[in-house]
């Protein structure tokens, strides 16, 4: 099995005959394309208009994360995205869930999210609001020039998407996100 078919295989179990499959080289400019396709497909399958911004941001974050991982560890490997509407409830009638899976080929790449990421804000010693932990806490630290993008991305994802599953295995990891499809 070559690298590309292996990457596709990582997410094949989520793929149906109606799925849209994206496979792109790990370049930042392709992330916007993935966002646009995700929103277009979400709209087509019936995701509520009020959730489309969330889909756009979440897919962008997951793809940015995968691109970053691949650029550091395996720049020759493609990032794979599968977008599908599935019958999660098993009704056998209609698809009720829009599911996006972004697969990477980097093993063991799930960082431990910092406790309280996106929350936990307290008054600093000088009366200035600073975070105790999470991305906001980085502002108070001087060691790093810029915030670690991957960690910030993970904080946004976990704070944004209720139906979120981030996994990592020996052949790579995946970010699976789901949103309801409205009843017709």
């Amino acid at each position: 099995m070559d690298a590309q078919s292996s990457a596709v295989g990582t997410v094949a179990k989520t793929e149906s005959a109606t799925a849209v499959l994206l496979r792109f080289t790990p370049q930042p400019e392709h992330v916007r394309t993935a966002r646009l396709v995700a929103v277009a497909h979400a709209r087509r399958v019936g995701v509520e208009a009020g959730l489309l911004d969330e889909v756009r941001l979440a897919v962008g974050e997951a793809c940015s994360r995968a691109v970053g991982l691949h650029q550091r560890h395996c720049p020759g490997e493609p990032v794979v995205v599968v977008l599908d509407a599935i019958d999660e409830s098993g009704s056998g009638l209609v698809a009720d869930r829009f599911v996006v899976t972004v697969a990477d080929k980097v093993s063991g790449a799930v960082p431990a999210p910092r406790a309280g990421a996106g929350a936990g804000v307290a008054e600093g010693a000088e009366g200035e609001a600073v975070a105790e932990s999470g991305p906001a806490a980085e502002v108070a630290e001087d060691e790093d020039e810029d915030l670690d993008d991957a960690e910030m991305g993970l904080a946004v994802l976990t704070g944004l998407v209720d139906d979120l599953d981030i996994t990592s295995g020996p052949d790579g990891g995946s970010v699976r996100m789901g949103w309801p499809v409205k009843d017709f």
Binding site: V139, D146, L147, G153, V156
Partner: peptide, 19 residues
């Protein structure tokens, strides 16, 4: 549109001016 990368840049800018 703004994502976490943009947030990181703004945080970096804040750290720079605060210095």
């Amino acid at each position: 549109f703004l994502d976490s990368t943009g947030l990181g840049v703004l945080v970096g800018g804040l750290k720079r001016v605060r210095a």
